[in-house]
């Protein structure tokens, strides 16, 4: 084969790589499970937080800290925030949650120490065994992030 022919083959292979690789790469990434919407790491269902934004799009997070940072950067009120009860693993509205700041870290990357519970007795139990305090008022996460009326 002459040099002109081999040059065209090389160009063709180059073009194939340059166009094909992004298409295949993007397709493969879409097939894999989605991680935390802030940093992309795998989500432990026990600490999962979901934020439903004003456009009804759901965003999943690996911990409360990631969800709070994400919402602060987004700078708009969310329709609803769902947190996971650490005792039962059930998801429920963050407004009715009891949050405890304790020495137990749920996510080493973010250093999240805030835990969510559905019942007050579970929250008080966790606070007593891990030297934590139940958060109230403005120290509660998502205080200024979630809308007051979920129907909005």
């Amino acid at each position: 084969m002459n040099s002109q022919g081999s040059r065209w083959i090389v160009r063709g292979i180059g073009l194939l790589i340059v166009i094909g690789l992004p298409i295949v790469g993007t397709w493969l990434r879409r097939q894999s499970d989605e991680g935390c919407a802030l940093d992309g790491i795998r989500i432990d269902p026990m600490f999962e937080v979901r934020i439903i934004d004003a456009r009804d799009v759901e965003h999943r997070f690996c911990c409360l800290q990631c969800a709070v940072w994400w919402a602060q950067r987004r700078g708009e009120k969310s329709r609803q925030v769902l947190v996971t009860d650490e005792t039962s693993g059930r998801r429920f509205d963050a407004r009715s949650a009891y949050f405890v700041r304790s020495g137990v870290i749920t996510n080493a990357t973010t250093g999240n120490r805030v835990h969510a519970f559905q019942s007050r007795s579970d929250a008080e139990h966790h606070a007593s065994v891990s030297r934590g305090t139940i958060l109230s008022g403005s120290s509660r996460p998502f205080e200024n992030i979630a809308r007051d009326d979920p129907a909005n």
Partner: peptide, 23 residues
């Protein structure tokens, strides 16, 4: 590429989007 709007990290492309590393 990472589909994480607040994650500005080139290092994450190495394990998660190696095709972008070629670019």
């Amino acid at each position: 590429v990472l589909r994480l709007p607040y994650h500005h990290c080139l290092y994450d492309l190495i394990p998660r989007a190696p095709d972008m590393v070629l670019a």
